[in-house]
Design a protein around this nucleic acid. Structure first.
Length: 881
RNA sequence: GCGGAUGUGGCGGAAUUGGUAGACGCGCAGCGUUGAGGUCGCUGUGGGGUAACACCCGUGAAGGUUCGAGUCCUUUCAUCCGCACCA
């Protein structure tokens, strides 16, 4: 066996897999299927380490399941619509389509050398008309099924560029290009009725046993089910048409503590007042300044204005409350109007304090005085006493108080108990070019008319420019101006495109039949769905996954997915990021300056590692790349503190911090197996992994050492006896058991630690008996999911039949996994003082005798009587004195 | 503001889920190999303490439950992620 040359063997085995068609997914009714999917990439330009980690994880699962005998589907595609393509066109010229497809070509070429077990015959991009045309067909079906509607919604409006901005494009309340103050503006937009499924999407979370608990929790909180009371305030001195204001509250038990009512600046009443009152109009305009994101809205200073309108308290007609317009009341939640109880709601308390409104407690903490007013009393359900509750709810606390208050209000005819959800309908309209066109036409005669399916796909026009802001579709007469599909009159095509989340909400289903002339093929979908293991970043824990769960239900309703697939992802795994340290200095003004890894040098001085700038080394006449640094130079470096670079560990890779590691450089230097092994080895997959140059090098050294070891064994005479064969067989069985458990449990770092241990045992064994050969072949198989190329070479070299990638996963003989004797530590009063070695199944009474006869134990007992003797079989002994 | 998570040696992490804290890897140190450096091989490596043992301390902090706590409970501090038009 020659030297370890990854470039040579990796190309060779990739070709062999390709020729054997190992990764082509086959619809084989006789075999169980397994569908592994990693969240598909956005084609941003080049692949990064995060991609390598994500796809290697999926690949490990795919290869492992294939070895287990499953018919595996492991596809790849491109989430190809989105803003960056338009931004590139604006900044550099060119067309989003060209930018996107050339990025796809580059990234695909970069992914190939990783040796992933992907079935490339199923590849597609969401910007392919064949894909988005099917998406348009589903939109029409969903429209017919009543899942689509239009309504007004607020957007970020840039008044200078005259365009809609994404939240990301609003920086400190200003447009990212124009720097103009952003306003909130209403636009008529398309919505999917995801709220029809609020209850179901919540209830079904319980069935997702193989999803991370935290993701289910986040989704549940996002859907935000609450039980409350909806009731109407009767108004006094309100404009015509506003005799009542509907309010929703989750705390009807605090109604007696009401001190004001507040409506959203977007509430119809606010709009009516705005039209006639310039002071209110100015205030509402003030509220509409700034972006639309929840973070901005909820951290903004609380602003309110008394409208002059009054409402009657529902429990006491003589009690009038002022109605404020308040910027923290959201039109999207509840009814867009609230009642304020400052004593028991922190936000209301802040508001009441600011505007001098009364604060009166409904309940007090146990033992506190009844006269507690003007203070905020947090809800502690166990320890409250009602002092101003209303009849029927006096004795209740906590949730019971809410339930009792709702019942009492219903009895009195004041309002109704309502189950409310925080989840809003999904607004999908985007005023942008590079997205899936919404297939409808606006006709002056017929109104909104769906396109005919025969006319699909509605293709994006190619002849567009991005020299001025806004949506080029809006100013493209030959594309925009059409005749009505229904009556033939002159009409206007919808120029909004769909949110790119729509594209990614069903791609997993399309992979099961990527070339079908309908969105899906029900036979294929029935075989391949669901995705058995889905893997991706935790940043998608809420939106993408919730939208996909909704879409699967909508697809079922419109006949595009079987009912078994309404929860499309059986198991979910959320992986962490790849981070890298940052090298930072500060300039004269104290601003941080970042340095590239190749511009710094790490030196070992007196057992410490000192990081210095190469350029500064040159200044003191030290050759920055020479390995030979004199002791004088080293001590000079220690003295020069300003020469040293601050190392900030574990930062997200970003160009501005200059800590991006390009996977292609790693593959060129060490090969794909090293890159794959390293990203799987150090950290648990759900956590961030820090890329270190030394770690990657160590991985390469390990693989080289293994290569040499296999070569050495191959050169030995057959049956050269090294270590005990029995020991080898046991070690092999244990490795199979532990690595299998590691992969099954998504603990790849532990699986790799076990592989290191196993390799260390083999390196010491130094023989070439059949037991050794079996051990090495097994090692190759266990490594194959992680490092498939070197595994193939070792497998072949050690006489494995066929391709390692197609060999059946090894099984451990259970008899070889049990140890006959066990070492029991002995604690005395909880401190470990001695240990004994006993047969595994020895009776506790026997163990006690041996333990008490142990000389260390006798020494520590020092003749004191034993109060208690605890034996945990096979684990530990504790003697209490 | 709301929601979710994470804190263990110099570093990444392990700990059979309440039972020997620090597996495995990196780094560092010593020895060997080498003309030298790197490579490679062997050994050591939580802190204090000792000639070496012994012994003491130790899982962000402070309390608690237990024969026994990294793991369970209470309080607290720090850091990271998401928030509906980034994907």
């Amino acid at each position: 066996m020659s030297r370890y040359e990854p470039a040579v063997i990796e190309a060779k085995w990739q070709q062999a897999w390709g020729e054997a068609g190992v990764f082509t997914a086959r619809h084989d009714p006789l075999r169980p299927k397994y569908y592994v999917l990693e969240m598909f990439p956005y084609p941003s330009g080049r692949i990064h380490m995060g991609h390598v980690r994500n796809y290697t994880m999926g690949d490990v699962v795919a290869r492992y399941k294939a070895a287990q005998g499953f018919s595996v589907l492991h596809p790849m595609g491109w989430d190809a619509f989105g803003m960056p393509a338009e931004n590139a066109a604006m900044e550099r010229g060119g067309h989003p389509k060209d930018w996107t497809y050339s990025n796809i070509a580059v990234m695909k070429e970069q992914m190939k050398p990783l040796g992933l077990s992907i079935d490339w015959s199923r590849e597609f991009a969401t910007c392919d008309p064949e894909y988005y045309g099917q998406q348009q067909a589903m939109f029409l079906d969903m429209m017919a099924a009543g899942l689509v509607y239009r309504k007004a919604a607020v957007v970020n409006w840039d008044p200078v560029d005259m365009t809609v901005l994404a939240n990301e494009q609003v920086i400190d309340g200003r447009g990212w290009r124009s720097n103009a103050l952003v306003e909130r503006r209403e636009l008529t937009q398309w919505f999917f009725k995801i709220s029809d499924y609020s209850g179901e999407l919540l209830a079904a979370l319980d069935g997702l046993k193989d999803w991370p608990e935290k993701v289910r929790l986040m989704q549940a909180n996002w859907i935000g089910q609450s039980r409350g009371l909806q009731f109407g305030f009767e108004t006094v001195a309100a404009p015509a048409g506003f005799a009542r204001i509907e309010v929703y509250t989750t705390r009807p038990d605090t109604l007696m503590g009401a001190s004001f009512a507040a409506i959203s600046p977007d509430h119809p009443l606010a709009k009516a007042l705005e039209a006639t009152d310039p002071v209110i109009a100015a205030f509402v305009a003030e509220c509409r300044r700034g972006g639309t994101s929840a973070e901005v809205l909820e951290t903004a200073e609380k602003l309110g204005m008394d409208t002059g309108v009054r409402v009657r308290h529902p429990l006491d007609a003589g009690w009038e409350l002022p109605v404020y317009i308040a910027n923290f009341v959201l039109m999207d939640y509840g009814t867009g109007a609230i009642f304020g109880c400052p004593a028991h709601d922190a936000r209301d308390y802040e508001f009441a304090t600011k505007y001098g409104l009364p604060i009166e407690a409904v309940f007090v903490g146990e033992g506190e005085a009844d006269g507690l007013t003007e203070a905020y009393v947090p809800m502690k359900s166990e320890k409250v006493r009602y002092v101003r509750g209303f009849a029927g709810a006096e004795v209740q606390t906590g949730e019971d108080a809410v339930t009792a208050a709702i019942a009492e209000c219903e009895r009195r005819g004041i309002g109704q108990g309502v189950t409310n959800y925080r989840l809003r309908d999904w607004g999908i309209s985007r005023q942008r070019y590079w997205g899936c066109p919404i297939p409808v036409v606006h006709c002056a005669v017929c109104g909104v008319v769906p396109e005919k399916k025969a006319n699909l796909p509605i293709r994006l026009p190619d002849d567009v420019t991005f020299d001025i802001p806004g949506n080029p579709l809006d100013r493209h007469p030959t594309w925009r101006d059409v005749s009505c599909p229904k009556c033939g009159a002159a009409a206007r095509r919808e120029t909004d495109t769909m949110d790119t989340f729509v594209d990614s909400s069903w791609y997993f289903a399309r992979f099961t039949a990527p070339h079908a002339v309908t969105p899906t093929d029900m036979t294929e979908a029935a075989y391949w769905m669901n995705v058995d293991q889905y893997i991706g970043g935790v940043e998608h824990a809420i939106l993408h996954l919730l939208y996909s769960r909704f879409f699967a239900r909508a697809m079922n309703k419109t006949g595009h997915l079987p009912v078994e697939a309404i929860e499309p992802f059986n198991a979910l795994f959320t992986q962490g990021m790849v981070t890298h340290e940052i090298y930072k200095t500060t300039d004269e003004a104290g601003r941080p300056v970042y340095h590239l890894p190749e511009d710094i040098r790490k030196l070992a001085i007196d057992g410490n590692v000192v990081t210095v700038l190469k350029s500064r080394l040159a200044e003191i006449d030290v050759d920055p790349d020479s390995s030979d640094v004199s002791d004088e130079a080293l001590s000079a470096i220690t003295l020069l503190a300003d020469l040293q670079v601050e190392v900030v560990p574990s930062a997200k890779m970003s160009k501005s911090k200059k800590n991006v590691v390009d996977p292609m450089n790693i593959i060129a230097a060490f090969g794909a197996d090293t890159a794959r092994w390293f990203v799987m080895s150090d950290s648990p997959p759900e956590r961030d992994v820090e890329w270190t140059a030394s770690g990657a090098e160590a991985t390469y050294k390990h693989l080289s050492r293994l290569w040499t070891l296999c070569g050495r064994i191959g050169d030995m005479p057959a049956d050269h006896k090294g270590a005990d064969d029995d020991l080898l067989l046991r070690a092999t069985a244990r490795a199979v058991h532990e690595v299998t458990q590691g992969i099954e449990g998504f603990a790849f770092n532990k699986a790799i630690a076990k592989l290191y241990e196993f390799t260390n045992i083999l390196a010491k064994a130094d023989g070439s008996t059949p037991a050794m050969k079996l051990a090495i072949r097994t090692l190759a198989q266990l490594m194959c999911p992680m490092t498939p190329h070197i595994a193939e070479s070792i497998w072949t070299f050690q006489g494995g039949a066929g391709l390692c990638a197609q060999a059946a996963w090894p099984k451990a003989d259970p008899a070889l996994l049990v140890d006959t004797t066990v070492i029991l530590p002995i604690q005395i009063n909880g401190k470990r003082r001695a240990e004994i070695s006993v047969p595994k199944d020895m009776a506790a009474s026997e163990v006690e005798k041996i333990a008490l006869a142990n000389e260390d134990v006798i020494k520590f007992l020092a003749g004191q009587p034993v109060k208690k003797f605890i034996v945990v079989p096979g684990r530990i002994i504790n003697v209490v004195i």
